[in-house]
């Protein structure tokens, strides 16, 4: 095992981690504001991927416009889901929303199979995205770099949005105490709706990137990224946006190094390892690495 090999595995881990991070940001943001574990987040990633395919193939839009349209489509989906199912449940125990989101996830998957067919479809990005770059003994592709940068840029934008803008202040106030925020004249419904819209839009962008990186999408594709990014968010501290990025990177690195450095037979224990880590982290570090002590979790 030479240093080149380890360096390549580290880069692989970072790339995979940025994929998880991309999905985890939206997830963590929604959690941070409304305390909802939104299991349907992964399925919005799927919707984003199919929307990308539709905009590229049927409408034939240029690439940056596609990204914008996908973002807006998924914003819309998020708003509808929030308005129809989560808003009426506001005030119910936390677990209620979690179960409901499981239900919505199953609905979206089955509707996907029913309308789009279960066949995986190929998904091709412009050729220049696939160019391989070499850096010493390490190689990666342009799209990997794009994904990495997108994750970082989105994180910075979101942090600024939450810290500096009026909407962000309203969001933080809502997260802190929903009743007091309402008394202060904040429109709770609008704030939460905006949270869902942005979070879901980000999931859509993540879907676009997943499709672009792996080149294949299907209606059940959202399950794994949903689950993994959720783990990432917990590791980083649910609710913390930089935490989601950090958690994503840590999870990606841990997974790749687990597969890459241990004897191959352990590769099939990858998921057991991921969830084992999750349980350990929940027990010893209930607020994750960067999470604030918002409530008692243990």
């Amino acid at each position: 095992m030479d240093s080149g090999y380890i360096a390549q595995q580290l880069v692989n881990g970072l790339i995979l981690g940025s994929m998880y991070a991309l999905v985890a940001i939206g997830f963590s943001m929604i959690y941070g504001i409304v305390r909802l574990i939104n299991f349907a987040h992964g399925d919005i990633v799927m919707i984003g991927a199919f929307a990308t395919l539709a905009f590229i193939e049927t409408v034939g839009l240029p690439f940056p416009l596609v990204a914008l349209c996908v973002f807006l489509t998924c914003c819309g989906v998020g708003i509808v889901i929030e308005r129809v199912s989560f808003r009426p449940m506001r005030g119910a125990p936390q677990v209620t929303g979690f179960i409901a989101s499981l239900g919505i996830s199953i609905m979206l998957q089955n509707i996907g199979i029913l309308t789009l067919s279960a066949q995986p479809r190929n998904f091709s990005f412009p050729g220049y995205m696939q160019t391989i770059l070499h850096l010493g003994s390490v190689s990666f592709r342009i799209i990997d770099l794009v994904i990495f940068l997108t994750a970082i840029v989105l994180m910075v934008t979101l942090v600024l949005l939450v810290k500096k803008t009026k909407l962000g202040i309203a969001m933080r106030a809502t997260a802190e105490n929903i009743d007091v925020a309402r008394l202060m004249g904040i429109n709770i419904n609008h704030t939460i709706m905006a949270t869902f819209a942005i979070g879901s839009g980000l999931a859509g962008i993540a879907g676009l990137m997943w499709g672009g990186k792996f080149g294949q999408i299907d209606p059940l594709m959202g399950y794994v990224p949903g689950l993994k990014s959720f783990v990432a968010a917990v590791i980083g501290g649910v609710g913390s946006i930089p935490g989601a990025i950090l958690g994503g990177f840590i999870l990606g690195l841990a997974e790749v190094l687990f597969v890459g450095l241990l004897p191959p037979i352990y590769s099939s224990y990858r998921d057991a390892f991921v969830f084992g880590t999750l349980i350990v982290i929940l027990i010893i570090l209930p607020n994750g690495l960067l999470g604030k002590d918002l409530e008692d979790r243990a």
Binding site: M1, Q9, I15, Y223, V224, P264, S267, S268
Partner: peptide
């Protein structure tokens, strides 16, 4: 010369590929 494993649903094979190369 090498046996490696993955699980259905895995999307990323970069770790296995790096090992294959090596």
């Amino acid at each position: 010369v090498l046996e490696d494993f993955f699980m259905m649903g895995d999307k990323d094979f970069s770790a296995q590929i790096a090992r294959l190369k090596n």
